[in-house]
Amino acid sequence: MDEKHSMEEDVKKEARRQYLRYFRFWFLAVAVLAIACIALKLSQGAREVPRTNSEAPTERVYDYANVLTDAEEADLREYIAQMEKKHRIDIVLVTFSQSVEGEEAREKYGLRSASWEQNMQDLADDFWDEHKFGYNKGFEGDGALLLHNWYEGQNGEHLSTSGSVEHKFSLRDIDEVLYAVDEYYDTNPYKAYRAYVKELCRRMDTSLSLPFSWGFVVILPIIIVLFYALIGAVQKKAENTVAVNAYVEGGRPQMRNKTDGLLRKNVVTRKIETSSGSRGGGGSSGGGGHHTSSGGASHGGGSHRH
């Protein structure tokens, strides 16, 4: 009985040894990655970049058009503050309702052009420059401003970029941020402005990531393990390896008669149908809409008019 017990103990010990040996590289890899994550997190905490521009106001949401409730404004401020810290850029939102087109804009409001696009751009750039926004400095500092005009018949947004955002954003990036706003502005302005902040930050995110989502992180191991289990569990007793001539004397038959006489032959013809086709396509891309504001600062940007 003792001997049997001791044998079982030996088998269990051996099973543990085999298990640890089999997974040693996996355990090591996971441990190394976990240590690397902790170390990086600690070092990032230690070298957090503080905001260096103290000239700009702390307000980020200027809802002159009054399209947001107080609670929504507060929520947006909190969200913007959190994202600004993470991405180290200023994120500003300005809504207003005023004509910015035609002679009325020039005469009544003193705008320099009759064009909607030009005036929206000027207003956005000037707002940024006058308030000395920018995470790192008050002139050409890092950040972006969304100017949304709710004036009837002139509804639309302009995104003004500055500093690192201006350098990073192409016209396509600007368009994508504006499209994110366009999707919700007429049904839920709060949601539209949250989408603006989210899309802006997503495009500013320079961190590396795997080419798949978190859902895939869960599903991929399941698929691999299923294959692993299947390959490990399926096995054949043995293959039949006896050759067809294994028991034939001399390895092949003695042919006494082999005849192949032609009985009949016929030929059928058909015309080959041919077809032809063509295909084409194309595309173009542009820069990030770089220009200089009336204050002499460099800005990027673009507009969407509804």
Partner: peptide, 20 residues
């Protein structure tokens, strides 16, 4: 522009000794 299909039929006979 034409495709031809020729079908030939043969009378096949085999006679062999097989020693197992």
């Amino acid at each position: 522009d034409r495709e031809y299909t020729e079908t030939s039929v043969y009378d096949v006979r085999r006679d062999m000794d097989l020693d197992f």
